[in-house]
Nucleic acid binder design. Structure first.
Length: 944
RNA sequence: GCCGGCGUGGUGGAAUUGGUAGACACGCAGGACUUAAAAUCCUGUGGCCGUAAGGCCGUAUCGGUUCAAGUCCGAUCGCCGGUACCA
């Protein structure tokens, strides 16, 4: 019988629906909660990327069910958002209608592909029964002081009259209309995520996320430790406070810089003598978008605030103050102490504006240790004029390449020492020109002298008197040879970074030294190493009330207001008497009113502002006249806690029942796109921790929502190009499902390549999987109760093992390869025993569930196989009895030998191998040096 | 610029984590079936030399460590992703 994908698949999808095959309760002993990101139901329908993620988790969940786990695999819709709203503005179709239509299409598509969701738990974030609790969470945050209103700068499109997200601003213009975008202050609701910053970093230890995902979380939070330091303004009461991670470089602060938005400029206006110039600069800077300002390639610009001086608190020096847009108001205090000697940005700025660059940290390489031999040295940088090459010594015995380095003898200046050493070691007469930077310190093992050395080096620039060398002593000749290398060669091949410093300074490529080291030019602190210095200076600052230890985060509080319609109304009311008051919890949900005009107002308020009847309300506190908040919540609001609600989706008493929370949470495995591993993950972890703190999430569950997080690679269009409508290369999964069936599409998406890598769609590959499934189907023609398939025991048991192991490691491609190997082996059998075939069907089931169900029922079973036990494998049978291992002679494979598995090395085997003709040929007349036999792996013979 | 990841046949990719490189699949070539084509089945398939046995080369490039390197180390080149002056 030919395989009829369409009818068979429809039949089983209907069966699963009617028999509630995948509905779960919280009764089983062991649970597994598998989660994928619920989609925004767009008009385009599901795409191949959704399918890759959903199918992978479906395979996992189907496998877990067969392991006996009570397996929850839920699905819902994140349906608030811009596309439906923009569509509404264009066509006047209420977003509710568009959304409902799209959702039903999504559900149909998901059912068509055979995903084993518990549909009884499904909801949309736009359901009032759901967003009632989203609003409830907001009120709880407000109660705890974690939701507050503040003025914030937003991107304002002057033509659309609408606030834009950073992503919607393209080189200073509105992405949609090309209109001018300016910064505008607006009152916004904010959530205090910064209060959770440290926990959001530290608790990552408890979870199993991919390392790059953890790193993204940590980087986004951007914690840095340092100090806040106060700089007085000369002849003024004003103070400029800065944040620095390098308080140990305070002595090198030779100027200050403030951001263009810094209020100090305003406050000190009267004292600025070039105010017109300064204001002009500020206006120009404000016009630039953040992206432009962040463009690293551009030159640093700035203007000095003439007439103002700041006082460096450590040495009371007067230093100039600049305004420059390389300092951001949004980080730290919006003002910096500039240390051009040890910060690359400050260095570039100082070079451009001729400000003093003062080194206060001597580079230290290696670690101080006991018993080191101290020596002060010179290192010589010499460039030949004729071809621009650098003079270097290649040490014969030690495989070093370094400039001429030598000790300074008594009574000698470093310059004299340099001239002498160059002459002695190379025969060239050279004149010392200048020192290249300050001294450097190195701690290293001097191989040539067999001692640990503590060296303080003076890089010195010399010039050759003429380019011909005199003869040098034989002892010097024996030690090293002189070579001349181009700049590139030299920087590439000189051993140790610190030996390159002289050349780099000479070429002006060294810049600012930002590393660790020893304090110099730092008054009483001279000689301290960086770490120690930081400790001491912070205490000194605290004692003198000039500063204190401080921690800064890149992470900001979360702006939670959007001037839109299609989002959760923020449940707050503004009363003239009482100010902002939260809506009574019993009044939730505050439903989004039906409106007719979805455009924002002229002054940039949410379209809701026009719904006067809805806006006017009573103050929950005093009962007086009040007005509702007309801004709505951002898209993130509904998606950051949805996985909690899946555990108890219909509860109208509380957000979640404690017992259900304890049973299902945390999520065991969360898979999704890499694009959501930063913000969505961070926000939902934050909300979960908050709910944990207020007792909604039981203590037993812990404060991390997801035990494990993985991410799939993108599905690219054919030829490896990103799919996009404009390129017309979007793959529509529906057409493949109708052509080949869901099982083929599912399996192809799992087979196409490693799950975490981006991979291009290939039509031919789809056809290949289709062929495989048809061959698997045809195997049932060979069924015979009496068949004896002992000769495939090995591959059968190996397959049961490997497929299971590969599924839980998300190595779906190799799991499928193994299924193919097994199918190929079965095909070669004359007859196939029913029990053997059952095992094949069971391990095929997670990937191709429809076909597997049909084969299963053909085998005489009445029930679905969804809850059948995963077959057991016999570890002994899964092991090959005989192992063929290669025999190498001097690293080349010359022969092989078949040995029983786990054969230990023995004299017998050795003898046997040395007698092999193929081997004899290579070892005759030679001395046997080594004979290596690694059990089950290799035999390696070395002869001379 | 910085931070990650990757580079293997004509193609997608395997490789027990240092142990016979190229599993599995696609494509291609030859053959069978067919009046023919499609579908299906069988055989072959990294390159070079050779009728063959066999040999040499081969995992981006160069170098190193090792009995043994796709795998480890160093440098270079290339691609992909993330990030953006974070003080």
């Amino acid at each position: 019988m030919k395989y009829q994908a369409d009818t068979i698949e429809k039949k089983w999808q209907q069966y699963w629906d009617e028999n509630n095959t995948f509905l779960v309760d919280d009764k089983g002993k062991q649970k597994f909660y598998g989660l994928v990101e619920f989609p925004y139901p767009s008009g385009d329908g599901l795409h191949t990327g959704h399918l890759r993620s959903y199918t992978a988790m479906d395979v996992l969940c189907r496998y877990q069910r067969m392991q006996g786990f009570q397996t929850l695999y839920p699905m819902g819709f994140d349906a608030f958002g811009l596309p439906a709203e923009n569509y509404a503005i264009k066509t006047n179709t209420p977003p509710k209608i568009t959304t409902e239509k799209n959702i039903s299409n999504y559900i149909k598509q998901m059912k068509d592909i055979g995903l084993s969701f518990d549909w009884d738990r499904s909801f949309s974030t736009t359901d009032p029964d759901y967003y009632r609790w989203t609003q409830w969470i907001f009120i709880q945050m407000h109660k705890q002081g974690l939701a507050y209103k503040a003025k914030e700068n937003i991107n304002w499109c002057t033509s659309c009259k609408i606030g834009l997200a950073n992503e919607e601003v393209v080189s200073g213009a509105c992405e949609r209309c090309g209109g001018e975008v300016v910064k505008q202050e607006k009152e916004q609701w904010m959530l205090k995520i910064t209060e959770y910053a440290d926990r959001l970093i530290n608790d990552l230890e408890q979870v199993d996320f991919l390392p790059q995902i953890k790193k993204q979380q940590v980087d986004w939070i951007g914690r840095s430790e340092g100090a806040e330091v106060q700089f007085k303004i000369k002849d003024s009461q004003e103070i400029l406070e800065v944040f620095t991670t390098r308080p140990d470089t305070l002595f090198g602060a030779t100027f200050m810089v403030v951001a263009p938005e810094h209020i100090a400029i305003h406050q000190l206006e009267g004292k600025i003598s070039n105010l017109a110039e300064v204001k002009k600069y500020i206006v120009a800077a404000k016009k630039k978008s953040d992206l432009e300002r962040a463009d690293l390639n551009k030159d640093k610009t700035g203007v000095e605030l003439k007439g103002l001086k700041a006082i460096n608190p450590v040495n009371n020096e007067e230093i100039p103050i600049f305004v420059a847009d390389y300092v951001m108001m949004s980080y730290g205090t919006g003002a910096i102490m500039a240390v051009p000697g040890h910060d690359q940005r400050d260095y570039e700025f100082a070079k451009k504006y001729n400000i003093e660059i003062r080194d206060v940290v001597m580079p230290v390489d290696g670690e101080v240790r006991d018993g080191e031999e101290y020596r002060e040295t010179i290192s010589a940088t010499i460039q030949r004029k004729s071809d621009g090459k650098f003079l270097l010594l290649k040490w014969k015995k030690f495989n070093w390449l370094a400039p001429v380095i030598g000790g300074i003898e008594e009574g000698e200046t470093p310059e004299q020492a340099a001239e002498r050493e160059v002459l002695e070691e190379t025969g060239y007469k050279a004149k010392a020109i200048k020192r290249l930077g300050n001294k450097t310190e190195e701690h290293f093992y001097a191989e040539n002298k067999d001692v640990w050395r503590y060296r303080v080096d003076n890089p010195i620039l010399l010039e050759l008197d003429d380019e011909s060398a005199q003869d040098i002593s034989d002892t010097e000749k024996a030690k090293h040879e002189i070579i001349w290398l181009s700049e590139k060669e030299a920087l590439q091949s000189v051993s140790h970074e610190y030996n390159k410093i002289g050349i780099l300074i000479y070429l002006d490529k060294y810049g600012a030294y930002g590393g660790e080291g020893r304090a110099i030019n730092s008054g009483e602190f001279d000689g301290l190493l960086t770490a120690e210095f930081k400790q001491k200076i912070i205490k000194w600052l605290e004692k003198n009330k000039l500063g204190k230890a401080a921690v800064n985060y890149k992470l900001h509080d979360w702006i939670f207001s959007r001037q839109r319609y299609w989002g959760e109304p923020i449940p707050m009311v503004n009363c003239d008497k009482c100010g902002w008051v939260a809506v009574a919890e019993d009044d939730l949900p505050i439903e989004l009113p039906d409106i007719k005009d979805f455009k924002p107002t002229d002054d940039g308020q949410s379209p809701l502002a026009k719904a006067e009847d809805w806006v006017k309300t009573e103050c929950p506190s005093c009962g007086g006249q009040a007005r509702r908040e007309t801004d709505v919540m951002p898209n993130w609001a509904g998606s950051n806690w949805y996985f909690i609600r899946f555990c108890d989706p219909k509860n109208n008493q509380e957000l979640i029942d404690k017992k259900k929370a304890e049973y299902w949470l945390p999520v065991d495995w969360y898979n999704g796109g890499m694009e959501h591993t930063t913000l969505h993950l961070l926000y939902s972890r934050f909300i979960f921790k908050f709910l944990y703190d207020i007792g909604v999430i039981p203590k037993k569950v812990g404060s991390e929502p997801y035990k494990k997080r993985t991410a799939q690679g993108m599905v690219l269009g054919e030829g490896g190009i990103k799919m996009s409508k404009s390129k017309g290369n979007v793959i529509n999964p529906d057409s493949y499902v109708s052509r080949y069936g869901a099982d083929t599409v599912r399996m192809y998406e799992m087979f196409m390549g490693p799950f975490d890598q981006s991979i291009a769609w290939d039509d031919k590959g789809v056809a290949g999987i289709y062929r495989f499934l048809n061959r698997a189907w045809d195997l049932q023609d060979k069924l015979d109760e009496k068949a004896d398939n002992v000769d495939i025991n090995n591959v059968l048991h190996k397959s049961i093992q490997k497929v299971g192991e590969d599924i839980v490691a998300m190595r779906f491609n190799t799991a499928i390869a193994q299924l193919m190997i097994l199918a190929n082996a079965l095909e070669k059998q004359d007859k196939i025993n029913n029990e053997v075939f059952e095992k094949f069907v069971l391990i095929l089931a997670p990937f191709a569930p429809h076909m597997a169900e049909e084969l299963w029922s053909e085998l005489g079973h009445k029930d679905s196989l969804a809850h059948e036990k995963w077959p057991k494998y016999d570890a002994k049978l899964a092991q090959d009895e005989l192992v063929t291992i290669g025999i190498q002679v001097n690293g080349k494979v010359r022969s092989e030998i078949e040995l029983p598995h786990d054969t230990e090395p023995s004299e017998d085997i050795k003898k046997q191998i040395l007698e092999q003709d193929k081997i004899k040929k290579y070892i005759e007349d030679k001395e046997l040096i080594k004979f290596i036999h690694i059990k089950n792996r290799i035999i390696s013979i070395v002869v001379k």
